[in-house]
């Protein structure tokens, strides 16, 4: 019985972890594909540049996939033109923009 309870607990906590992951992924409003993101300094550069923008609440940089994910503050927007300008100011090149919401 103890073993079953333990297995069930592990299973449930895994589900919980998985749902948290999915929920976090869905929280990002914009996914930006960027060219030239090859090192931590590059990632740091775009992170700092976007963080200074008031409408950006949270930013996640994925070097492996060469993308930036943005969560905006409630009710705010960020135009494609502004995104392109910020990427260029960071020193990189914009590939594409996906709107998740």
């Amino acid at each position: 019985m103890k073993t079953i309870t333990l297995i069930l607990s592990i299973f449930l906590s895994s589900l919980n972890f998985l749902s948290a992951e999915i929920s976090e992924k869905n929280n990002f409003d914009i996914t930006i594909h960027v060219k030239g993101l090859v090192c931590d300094f590059c990632a740091r550069s775009v992170e700092k540049t976007f963080s200074k923008t008031e409408v950006v609440e949270r930013i996640k940089v994925d070097l492996d996939k060469g993308l930036i994910e943005l969560q905006l503050t409630e009710g705010s927007t960020l135009s494609d033109k502004k995104i392109q300008k910020l990427i260029k100011a960071s020193g990189y090149a914009l590939e594409s923009i996906e709107r998740n919401k």
Partner: peptide
Amino acid sequence: HLIFRKNQKKSQ
């Protein structure tokens, strides 16, 4: 001064 930069999907 950065004279030129080429950003590509997997390189810079």
